[in-house]
Design a protein around this nucleic acid. Sequence first.
DNA 1: ATGTTTGATCTGTGATCACACTTGATTTGA
DNA 2: TCAAATCAAGTGTGATCACAGATCAAACAT
Lengths: 232, 232
Amino acid sequence: MVEIAVGLAPVGRDTVQDRVYSELRRALIGGLFAPGQVLTIRQLADALLTSTMPVREALGRLIAEQALEALPNRSIRVPLVTLDRIEDLLRTRVLLEGEAMELAAQRMTPRLLDSIRTIMAEWEEMRLGGDPETVDREVTLNHAFHFEIYRACGSTILPPMIESLWLQSGPFTRAAIYAFAEAGAQDAARFHHDILNALAAGDGVAARAALVADISRPFAYLREKLGKEGVA
Amino acid sequence: MVEIAVGLAPVGRDTVQDRVYSELRRALIGGLFAPGQVLTIRQLADALLTSTMPVREALGRLIAEQALEALPNRSIRVPLVTLDRIEDLLRTRVLLEGEAMELAAQRMTPRLLDSIRTIMAEWEEMRLGGDPETVDREVTLNHAFHFEIYRACGSTILPPMIESLWLQSGPFTRAAIYAFAEAGAQDAARFHHDILNALAAGDGVAARAALVADISRPFAYLREKLGKEGVA
DNA sequence: ATGTTTGATCTGTGATCACACTTGATTTGA
DNA sequence: TCAAATCAAGTGTGATCACAGATCAAACAT
Protein backbone atom coordinates (compact mmCIF):
# COMPACT_ATOMS: atom_id res chain seq x y z
CA MET A 1 0.00 0.00 0.00
CA VAL A 2 1.28 3.47 -0.85
CA GLU A 3 1.86 6.08 1.81
CA ILE A 4 -0.95 8.65 1.76
CA ALA A 5 -1.70 11.75 3.78
CA VAL A 6 1.46 11.68 5.86
CA GLY A 7 0.62 15.06 7.35
CA LEU A 8 -2.46 13.87 9.20
CA ALA A 9 -2.43 13.39 12.93
CA PRO A 10 -3.73 10.18 14.48
CA VAL A 11 -7.37 10.65 15.32
CA GLY A 12 -7.30 9.32 18.86
CA ARG A 13 -10.23 7.97 20.82
CA ASP A 14 -12.54 9.96 23.00
CA THR A 15 -13.93 7.76 25.74
CA VAL A 16 -15.98 9.00 28.64
CA GLN A 17 -13.31 7.79 31.00
CA ASP A 18 -10.70 9.94 29.29
CA ARG A 19 -12.88 13.00 29.52
CA VAL A 20 -13.50 12.38 33.21
CA TYR A 21 -9.79 11.85 33.74
CA SER A 22 -8.86 15.05 31.93
CA GLU A 23 -11.44 17.02 33.83
CA LEU A 24 -10.25 15.73 37.21
CA ARG A 25 -6.65 16.33 36.23
CA ARG A 26 -7.43 19.88 35.19
CA ALA A 27 -9.25 20.46 38.44
CA LEU A 28 -6.33 19.09 40.46
CA ILE A 29 -3.63 21.07 38.70
CA GLY A 30 -5.78 24.17 38.90
CA GLY A 31 -6.22 23.67 42.62
CA LEU A 32 -10.01 23.31 42.57
CA PHE A 33 -9.82 20.59 45.20
CA ALA A 34 -8.69 21.37 48.71
CA PRO A 35 -5.95 19.28 50.35
CA GLY A 36 -7.53 16.54 52.45
CA GLN A 37 -10.86 16.79 50.63
CA VAL A 38 -12.58 13.42 50.31
CA LEU A 39 -13.81 12.50 46.84
CA THR A 40 -16.58 9.97 46.40
CA ILE A 41 -17.25 8.15 43.16
CA ARG A 42 -21.00 8.67 43.10
CA GLN A 43 -20.79 12.34 43.96
CA LEU A 44 -18.30 12.95 41.15
CA ALA A 45 -20.37 10.87 38.75
CA ASP A 46 -23.39 13.06 39.51
CA ALA A 47 -21.41 16.25 39.10
CA LEU A 48 -19.96 15.10 35.78
CA LEU A 49 -23.29 13.71 34.55
CA THR A 50 -21.98 10.20 33.93
CA SER A 51 -22.22 6.88 35.67
CA THR A 52 -19.85 5.62 38.33
CA MET A 53 -17.89 3.36 36.00
CA PRO A 54 -15.73 5.92 34.16
CA VAL A 55 -15.19 7.88 37.38
CA ARG A 56 -13.85 4.96 39.38
CA GLU A 57 -11.40 4.06 36.63
CA ALA A 58 -10.22 7.65 36.31
CA LEU A 59 -9.76 7.83 40.08
CA GLY A 60 -7.81 4.59 39.94
CA ARG A 61 -5.44 6.10 37.41
CA LEU A 62 -4.98 9.22 39.51
CA ILE A 63 -4.24 7.14 42.59
CA ALA A 64 -1.66 5.17 40.63
CA GLU A 65 0.00 8.47 39.70
CA GLN A 66 0.08 9.57 43.36
CA ALA A 67 -2.22 12.45 42.52
CA LEU A 68 -4.85 11.10 44.92
CA GLU A 69 -4.59 8.99 48.03
CA ALA A 70 -6.47 5.78 48.85
CA LEU A 71 -7.13 5.56 52.56
CA PRO A 72 -7.42 2.19 54.34
CA ASN A 73 -11.08 3.14 54.91
CA ARG A 74 -11.49 2.72 51.18
CA SER A 75 -12.18 6.41 50.88
CA ILE A 76 -10.28 8.59 48.44
CA ARG A 77 -8.91 11.98 49.24
CA VAL A 78 -6.67 14.74 47.99
CA PRO A 79 -3.30 14.33 49.77
CA LEU A 80 -2.64 16.56 52.75
CA VAL A 81 -0.15 19.40 52.59
CA THR A 82 2.67 19.15 55.07
CA LEU A 83 5.97 20.93 55.35
CA ASP A 84 7.87 17.71 54.63
CA ARG A 85 5.82 17.06 51.56
CA ILE A 86 6.45 20.55 50.22
CA GLU A 87 10.19 20.19 50.61
CA ASP A 88 10.01 16.77 49.04
CA LEU A 89 8.00 17.94 46.05
CA LEU A 90 10.19 20.97 45.44
CA ARG A 91 13.40 18.96 45.60
CA THR A 92 12.06 16.37 43.17
CA ARG A 93 10.68 18.98 40.81
CA VAL A 94 13.99 20.81 40.74
CA LEU A 95 15.73 17.53 39.97
CA LEU A 96 13.46 16.42 37.15
CA GLU A 97 12.41 19.73 35.64
CA GLY A 98 15.93 21.07 35.85
CA GLU A 99 17.20 18.08 33.89
CA ALA A 100 14.40 18.35 31.33
CA MET A 101 15.08 22.04 30.90
CA GLU A 102 18.78 21.57 30.35
CA LEU A 103 18.15 18.80 27.83
CA ALA A 104 15.58 20.93 26.04
CA ALA A 105 18.03 23.83 25.80
CA GLN A 106 20.39 21.63 23.78
CA ARG A 107 17.67 20.62 21.33
CA MET A 108 15.86 23.91 20.90
CA THR A 109 14.65 24.85 17.42
CA PRO A 110 13.50 28.25 16.13
CA ARG A 111 10.08 26.79 15.46
CA LEU A 112 9.66 25.59 19.04
CA LEU A 113 11.02 28.84 20.37
CA ASP A 114 8.34 30.68 18.45
CA SER A 115 5.64 28.44 19.83
CA ILE A 116 6.84 29.08 23.36
CA ARG A 117 7.02 32.83 22.77
CA THR A 118 3.42 32.82 21.59
CA ILE A 119 2.24 31.14 24.78
CA MET A 120 4.36 33.50 26.84
CA ALA A 121 2.90 36.53 25.10
CA GLU A 122 -0.68 35.50 25.80
CA TRP A 123 0.21 34.68 29.37
CA GLU A 124 1.83 38.03 29.96
CA GLU A 125 -1.04 39.94 28.42
CA MET A 126 -3.42 38.14 30.73
CA ARG A 127 -1.34 38.88 33.79
CA LEU A 128 -1.19 42.58 32.94
CA GLY A 129 -4.98 42.59 32.77
CA GLY A 130 -5.08 41.67 36.44
CA ASP A 131 -8.54 40.14 36.12
CA PRO A 132 -9.04 37.64 38.96
CA GLU A 133 -11.50 35.73 36.78
CA THR A 134 -8.72 34.69 34.44
CA VAL A 135 -6.73 32.76 37.00
CA ASP A 136 -7.88 29.47 35.46
CA ARG A 137 -6.61 30.50 32.07
CA GLU A 138 -3.40 31.69 33.67
CA VAL A 139 -2.79 28.32 35.26
CA THR A 140 -3.43 26.64 31.92
CA LEU A 141 -1.01 28.92 30.10
CA ASN A 142 1.67 28.51 32.71
CA HIS A 143 1.30 24.77 32.33
CA ALA A 144 1.48 25.04 28.54
CA PHE A 145 4.57 27.22 28.73
CA HIS A 146 6.52 24.73 30.79
CA PHE A 147 5.44 21.57 29.05
CA GLU A 148 6.00 22.96 25.58
CA ILE A 149 9.61 23.15 26.71
CA TYR A 150 9.73 19.80 28.48
CA ARG A 151 8.33 18.02 25.47
CA ALA A 152 11.36 19.21 23.56
CA CYS A 153 13.78 17.49 25.95
CA GLY A 154 13.87 14.38 23.78
CA SER A 155 12.75 12.06 26.54
CA THR A 156 9.40 10.30 26.50
CA ILE A 157 9.78 9.30 30.12
CA LEU A 158 10.53 12.60 31.82
CA PRO A 159 7.45 14.66 30.83
CA PRO A 160 4.85 12.22 32.21
CA MET A 161 6.77 12.04 35.46
CA ILE A 162 6.85 15.81 35.69
CA GLU A 163 3.13 15.90 34.97
CA SER A 164 2.66 13.62 37.94
CA LEU A 165 4.62 16.07 40.10
CA TRP A 166 2.48 18.98 38.89
CA LEU A 167 -0.58 16.95 39.76
CA GLN A 168 0.75 16.49 43.26
CA SER A 169 1.71 20.14 43.55
CA GLY A 170 -1.63 21.35 42.23
CA PRO A 171 -3.71 21.35 45.40
CA PHE A 172 -1.56 24.02 47.01
CA THR A 173 -0.01 26.02 44.21
CA ARG A 174 -3.22 27.96 43.62
CA ALA A 175 -2.90 29.57 47.02
CA ALA A 176 0.55 30.74 46.03
CA ILE A 177 -0.65 32.03 42.68
CA TYR A 178 -3.32 34.15 44.32
CA ALA A 179 -0.87 35.52 46.83
CA PHE A 180 1.60 36.43 44.11
CA ALA A 181 -1.02 37.94 41.85
CA GLU A 182 0.36 41.40 42.53
CA ALA A 183 3.49 40.98 44.62
CA GLY A 184 5.28 38.48 42.41
CA ALA A 185 3.84 39.12 38.99
CA GLN A 186 6.90 40.85 37.63
CA ASP A 187 9.17 38.26 39.23
CA ALA A 188 7.42 35.34 37.57
CA ALA A 189 7.45 37.18 34.27
CA ARG A 190 11.15 37.91 34.68
CA PHE A 191 11.96 34.26 35.38
CA HIS A 192 10.04 33.18 32.32
CA HIS A 193 11.91 35.74 30.26
CA ASP A 194 15.18 34.49 31.68
CA ILE A 195 14.24 30.97 30.68
CA LEU A 196 13.31 32.08 27.20
CA ASN A 197 16.53 34.02 26.72
CA ALA A 198 18.65 31.15 27.98
CA LEU A 199 16.86 28.75 25.65
CA ALA A 200 17.36 31.07 22.70
CA ALA A 201 21.07 31.21 23.52
CA GLY A 202 21.20 27.45 23.94
CA ASP A 203 22.56 27.95 27.46
CA GLY A 204 21.28 24.94 29.38
CA VAL A 205 22.88 25.87 32.70
CA ALA A 206 21.32 29.33 32.71
CA ALA A 207 17.94 27.88 31.69
CA ARG A 208 18.09 25.45 34.57
CA ALA A 209 18.98 28.19 37.04
CA ALA A 210 16.13 30.41 35.88
CA LEU A 211 13.70 27.52 36.12
CA VAL A 212 14.80 26.65 39.65
CA ALA A 213 14.22 30.25 40.65
CA ASP A 214 10.81 30.17 38.99
CA ILE A 215 9.47 27.10 40.74
CA SER A 216 11.19 27.73 44.05
CA ARG A 217 9.43 31.04 44.50
CA PRO A 218 5.87 29.88 45.31
CA PHE A 219 7.22 26.96 47.32
CA ALA A 220 9.27 29.28 49.49
CA TYR A 221 6.20 31.35 50.13
CA LEU A 222 4.15 28.31 51.09
CA ARG A 223 6.88 27.00 53.35
CA GLU A 224 6.96 30.27 55.22
CA LYS A 225 3.19 30.47 55.47
CA LEU A 226 2.82 26.90 56.69
CA GLY A 227 5.62 27.37 59.17
CA LYS A 228 3.49 30.00 60.88
CA GLU A 229 0.10 28.32 60.69
CA GLY A 230 0.92 24.62 60.99
CA VAL A 231 -0.73 22.26 58.54
CA ALA A 232 -3.48 23.65 56.34
CA MET B 1 -11.61 4.34 74.80
CA VAL B 2 -8.33 3.06 76.21
CA GLU B 3 -5.34 2.40 74.01
CA ILE B 4 -4.86 -1.33 73.45
CA ALA B 5 -2.35 -3.40 71.53
CA VAL B 6 -0.24 -0.50 70.31
CA GLY B 7 2.35 -2.86 68.88
CA LEU B 8 0.08 -4.23 66.17
CA ALA B 9 0.57 -3.27 62.55
CA PRO B 10 -2.37 -1.93 60.52
CA VAL B 11 -4.06 -4.85 58.87
CA GLY B 12 -4.46 -3.35 55.41
CA ARG B 13 -7.05 -4.41 52.86
CA ASP B 14 -6.70 -7.27 50.49
CA THR B 15 -8.89 -6.68 47.48
CA VAL B 16 -8.85 -8.85 44.40
CA GLN B 17 -7.77 -5.87 42.35
CA ASP B 18 -4.69 -5.38 44.51
CA ARG B 19 -3.71 -9.01 44.16
CA VAL B 20 -4.11 -8.85 40.39
CA TYR B 21 -2.11 -5.64 40.32
CA SER B 22 0.70 -7.10 42.42
CA GLU B 23 0.81 -10.22 40.31
CA LEU B 24 1.02 -8.27 37.05
CA ARG B 25 3.62 -5.96 38.50
CA ARG B 26 5.72 -8.90 39.63
CA ALA B 27 5.44 -10.47 36.20
CA LEU B 28 6.47 -7.24 34.50
CA ILE B 29 9.49 -6.55 36.70
CA GLY B 30 10.53 -10.18 36.40
CA GLY B 31 10.33 -9.94 32.63
CA LEU B 32 7.66 -12.63 32.18
CA PHE B 33 6.01 -10.58 29.45
CA ALA B 34 7.75 -10.00 26.16
CA PRO B 35 8.10 -6.45 24.75
CA GLY B 36 5.26 -5.79 22.32
CA GLN B 37 3.11 -8.59 23.73
CA VAL B 38 -0.60 -7.75 23.66
CA LEU B 39 -2.52 -8.30 26.87
CA THR B 40 -6.28 -8.80 26.83
CA ILE B 41 -8.49 -8.37 29.85
CA ARG B 42 -10.48 -11.56 29.48
CA GLN B 43 -7.44 -13.70 28.83
CA LEU B 44 -5.74 -12.38 31.98
CA ALA B 45 -8.96 -12.76 33.97
CA ASP B 46 -9.12 -16.42 32.94
CA ALA B 47 -5.47 -17.01 33.76
CA LEU B 48 -5.85 -15.36 37.18
CA LEU B 49 -9.18 -17.07 37.89
CA THR B 50 -11.09 -13.86 38.49
CA SER B 51 -13.58 -11.76 36.58
CA THR B 52 -12.69 -8.98 34.17
CA MET B 53 -13.44 -6.20 36.61
CA PRO B 54 -10.35 -6.33 38.84
CA VAL B 55 -8.12 -6.97 35.83
CA ARG B 56 -9.23 -3.95 33.86
CA GLU B 57 -8.72 -1.67 36.84
CA ALA B 58 -5.28 -3.12 37.49
CA LEU B 59 -4.36 -2.64 33.84
CA GLY B 60 -5.63 0.92 34.04
CA ARG B 61 -3.29 1.61 36.93
CA LEU B 62 -0.35 0.07 35.09
CA ILE B 63 -1.08 2.17 32.02
CA ALA B 64 -1.20 5.28 34.19
CA GLU B 65 2.26 4.37 35.48
CA GLN B 66 3.59 3.94 31.93
CA ALA B 67 4.26 0.27 32.64
CA LEU B 68 1.86 -0.69 29.85
CA GLU B 69 0.79 1.06 26.69
CA ALA B 70 -2.75 1.73 25.46
CA LEU B 71 -2.87 1.64 21.68
CA PRO B 72 -5.40 3.69 19.72
CA ASN B 73 -6.90 0.33 18.71
CA ARG B 74 -7.96 0.03 22.34
CA SER B 75 -5.61 -2.88 22.74
CA ILE B 76 -3.06 -3.00 25.54
CA ARG B 77 0.53 -4.10 25.12
CA VAL B 78 3.88 -4.23 26.80
CA PRO B 79 5.91 -1.29 25.42
CA LEU B 80 8.42 -2.03 22.68
CA VAL B 81 12.15 -1.95 23.30
CA THR B 82 14.06 0.51 21.18
CA LEU B 83 17.54 1.92 21.43
CA ASP B 84 16.18 5.37 22.18
CA ARG B 85 14.00 4.03 24.92
CA ILE B 86 16.90 2.20 26.53
CA GLU B 87 19.04 5.33 26.59
CA ASP B 88 16.09 7.27 27.93
CA LEU B 89 15.36 4.82 30.72
CA LEU B 90 18.98 4.52 31.76
CA ARG B 91 19.47 8.28 31.89
CA THR B 92 16.34 8.76 33.99
CA ARG B 93 17.18 5.90 36.31
CA VAL B 94 20.67 7.27 36.90
CA LEU B 95 19.14 10.64 37.69
CA LEU B 96 16.51 9.45 40.13
CA GLU B 97 18.18 6.44 41.69
CA GLY B 98 21.46 8.30 42.01
CA GLU B 99 19.72 11.06 43.92
CA ALA B 100 17.84 8.59 46.13
CA MET B 101 21.05 6.72 46.85
CA GLU B 102 22.96 9.84 47.84
CA LEU B 103 20.10 10.97 50.09
CA ALA B 104 19.91 7.52 51.67
CA ALA B 105 23.64 7.54 52.40
CA GLN B 106 23.18 10.64 54.53
CA ARG B 107 20.38 9.07 56.58
CA MET B 108 21.71 5.55 56.98
CA THR B 109 21.21 3.82 60.34
CA PRO B 110 22.94 0.69 61.66
CA ARG B 111 19.58 -1.05 61.81
CA LEU B 112 18.86 -0.40 58.14
CA LEU B 113 22.37 -1.36 57.18
CA ASP B 114 21.85 -4.71 58.85
CA SER B 115 18.62 -5.25 57.01
CA ILE B 116 20.31 -4.54 53.70
CA ARG B 117 23.22 -6.83 54.53
CA THR B 118 20.78 -9.66 55.25
CA ILE B 119 19.17 -9.28 51.83
CA MET B 120 22.56 -9.03 50.20
CA ALA B 121 23.76 -12.22 51.92
CA GLU B 122 20.79 -14.24 50.71
CA TRP B 123 21.17 -12.83 47.22
CA GLU B 124 24.88 -13.69 47.05
CA GLU B 125 24.34 -17.22 48.32
CA MET B 126 21.74 -17.75 45.62
CA ARG B 127 24.02 -16.44 42.90
CA LEU B 128 26.82 -18.73 43.98
CA GLY B 129 24.44 -21.65 43.66
CA GLY B 130 24.15 -20.90 39.98
CA ASP B 131 20.77 -22.60 39.77
CA PRO B 132 18.88 -21.22 36.73
CA GLU B 133 15.61 -22.03 38.47
CA THR B 134 16.25 -19.37 41.09
CA VAL B 135 16.34 -16.46 38.69
CA ASP B 136 12.89 -15.33 39.87
CA ARG B 137 14.04 -15.23 43.46
CA GLU B 138 17.19 -13.44 42.36
CA VAL B 139 15.17 -10.72 40.66
CA THR B 140 13.06 -10.34 43.78
CA LEU B 141 16.11 -10.06 46.03
CA ASN B 142 17.81 -7.57 43.74
CA HIS B 143 14.64 -5.49 43.88
CA ALA B 144 14.50 -5.76 47.65
CA PHE B 145 18.15 -4.77 47.99
CA HIS B 146 17.72 -1.56 46.03
CA PHE B 147 14.38 -0.48 47.44
CA GLU B 148 15.37 -1.15 51.03
CA ILE B 149 17.94 1.56 50.37
CA TYR B 150 15.65 3.90 48.44
CA ARG B 151 13.02 3.81 51.15
CA ALA B 152 15.62 5.24 53.48
CA CYS B 153 16.13 8.33 51.34
CA GLY B 154 13.51 10.27 53.31
CA SER B 155 11.38 11.06 50.29
CA THR B 156 7.91 9.63 49.81
CA ILE B 157 7.84 10.77 46.21
CA LEU B 158 11.05 9.32 44.82
CA PRO B 159 10.56 5.58 45.53
CA PRO B 160 7.23 5.23 43.68
CA MET B 161 8.72 7.02 40.68
CA ILE B 162 11.70 4.68 40.71
CA GLU B 163 9.31 1.73 40.95
CA SER B 164 7.67 3.01 37.82
CA LEU B 165 11.04 3.06 36.08
CA TRP B 166 11.77 -0.50 37.17
CA LEU B 167 8.41 -1.51 35.82
CA GLN B 168 9.32 0.02 32.49
CA SER B 169 12.77 -1.58 32.53
CA GLY B 170 11.43 -5.00 33.49
CA PRO B 171 10.54 -6.37 30.08
CA PHE B 172 14.13 -6.35 28.92
CA THR B 173 16.28 -6.61 32.03
CA ARG B 174 15.69 -10.33 32.29
CA ALA B 175 17.55 -10.89 29.07
CA ALA B 176 20.47 -9.05 30.55
CA ILE B 177 20.31 -11.00 33.78
CA TYR B 178 20.48 -14.31 31.96
CA ALA B 179 23.38 -13.11 29.87
CA PHE B 180 25.29 -12.00 32.93
CA ALA B 181 24.54 -15.13 34.92
CA GLU B 182 28.15 -16.21 34.58
CA ALA B 183 30.02 -13.41 32.88
CA GLY B 184 29.00 -10.55 35.17
CA ALA B 185 28.11 -12.27 38.42
CA GLN B 186 31.19 -11.12 40.26
CA ASP B 187 30.84 -7.63 38.79
CA ALA B 188 27.28 -7.23 40.04
CA ALA B 189 28.29 -8.58 43.43
CA ARG B 190 31.22 -6.19 43.54
CA PHE B 191 29.03 -3.19 42.73
CA HIS B 192 26.61 -4.17 45.47
CA HIS B 193 29.47 -4.48 47.91
CA ASP B 194 30.76 -1.09 46.83
CA ILE B 195 27.34 0.37 47.48
CA LEU B 196 27.16 -1.24 50.89
CA ASN B 197 30.61 -0.04 51.90
CA ALA B 198 29.90 3.49 50.74
CA LEU B 199 26.63 3.52 52.67
CA ALA B 200 28.36 2.23 55.79
CA ALA B 201 30.90 5.02 55.45
CA GLY B 202 28.16 7.58 54.82
CA ASP B 203 29.85 8.49 51.56
CA GLY B 204 26.98 9.54 49.30
CA VAL B 205 29.10 10.38 46.29
CA ALA B 206 30.78 6.98 46.27
CA ALA B 207 27.43 5.25 46.78
CA ARG B 208 26.00 7.08 43.80
CA ALA B 209 28.99 6.17 41.64
CA ALA B 210 28.75 2.49 42.54
CA LEU B 211 25.04 2.49 41.83
CA VAL B 212 25.50 4.10 38.44
CA ALA B 213 28.02 1.42 37.58
CA ASP B 214 25.62 -1.26 38.78
CA ILE B 215 22.63 -0.22 36.70
CA SER B 216 24.64 0.90 33.67
CA ARG B 217 26.11 -2.56 33.20
CA PRO B 218 23.09 -4.49 31.89
CA PHE B 219 21.96 -1.48 29.89
CA ALA B 220 25.30 -1.26 28.15
CA TYR B 221 25.03 -4.90 27.23
CA LEU B 222 21.55 -4.47 25.84
CA ARG B 223 22.54 -1.40 23.89
CA GLU B 224 25.33 -3.31 22.24
CA LYS B 225 23.16 -6.31 21.52
CA LEU B 226 20.34 -4.22 20.05
CA GLY B 227 22.79 -2.22 17.98
CA LYS B 228 23.70 -5.41 16.17
CA GLU B 229 20.25 -6.94 15.82
CA GLY B 230 17.97 -3.92 15.42
CA VAL B 231 14.81 -3.81 17.53
CA ALA B 232 13.91 -6.93 19.49
C1' DA C 1 -4.64 -10.79 -9.46
C1' DT C 2 -6.09 -6.96 -6.86
C1' DG C 3 -9.29 -4.53 -4.24
C1' DT C 4 -13.84 -4.48 -1.92
C1' DT C 5 -17.50 -6.19 0.77
C1' DT C 6 -19.43 -9.14 4.12
C1' DG C 7 -19.93 -11.54 8.32
C1' DA C 8 -18.44 -13.88 12.52
C1' DT C 9 -15.73 -13.28 16.50
C1' DC C 10 -13.28 -10.88 19.92
C1' DT C 11 -12.14 -6.56 22.30
C1' DG C 12 -12.65 -2.63 25.53
C1' DT C 13 -16.33 0.43 27.41
C1' DG C 14 -20.08 1.59 30.16
C1' DA C 15 -24.43 0.54 32.90
C1' DT C 16 -26.55 -1.80 36.54
C1' DC C 17 -27.01 -4.68 40.44
C1' DA C 18 -25.62 -7.22 44.79
C1' DC C 19 -22.56 -7.33 48.60
C1' DA C 20 -19.51 -6.17 52.49
C1' DC C 21 -17.82 -2.60 55.01
C1' DT C 22 -17.67 2.12 57.16
C1' DT C 23 -19.79 5.82 59.43
C1' DG C 24 -22.61 8.52 62.26
C1' DA C 25 -26.70 9.22 64.64
C1' DT C 26 -30.15 7.06 67.43
C1' DT C 27 -31.64 4.05 70.79
C1' DT C 28 -30.91 1.11 74.61
C1' DG C 29 -29.00 -0.30 78.91
C1' DA C 30 -26.87 0.22 83.46
C1' DT D 1 -25.60 10.68 82.78
C1' DC D 2 -22.74 8.11 80.06
C1' DA D 3 -21.18 4.20 77.52
C1' DA D 4 -22.54 0.41 74.63
C1' DA D 5 -25.41 -1.58 71.17
C1' DT D 6 -28.12 -0.85 67.14
C1' DC D 7 -29.75 0.71 62.94
C1' DA D 8 -29.78 3.21 58.49
C1' DA D 9 -27.51 5.61 54.95
C1' DG D 10 -23.61 5.75 52.13
C1' DT D 11 -19.20 3.78 50.36
C1' DG D 12 -15.97 1.07 47.30
C1' DT D 13 -15.72 -3.58 45.18
C1' DG D 14 -16.82 -7.08 42.08
C1' DA D 15 -19.98 -9.67 38.78
C1' DT D 16 -22.74 -9.61 34.85
C1' DC D 17 -24.79 -7.89 30.76
C1' DA D 18 -25.35 -4.94 26.49
C1' DC D 19 -23.07 -2.46 22.97
C1' DA D 20 -19.96 -0.29 19.56
C1' DG D 21 -15.71 -0.71 17.41
C1' DA D 22 -11.75 -3.67 15.76
C1' DT D 23 -9.94 -7.66 13.46
C1' DC D 24 -9.47 -11.09 10.23
C1' DA D 25 -10.82 -14.34 7.03
C1' DA D 26 -13.67 -15.86 3.23
C1' DA D 27 -16.50 -14.67 -0.60
C1' DC D 28 -17.27 -11.52 -4.11
C1' DA D 29 -16.59 -8.09 -7.84
C1' DT D 30 -13.68 -5.61 -10.86
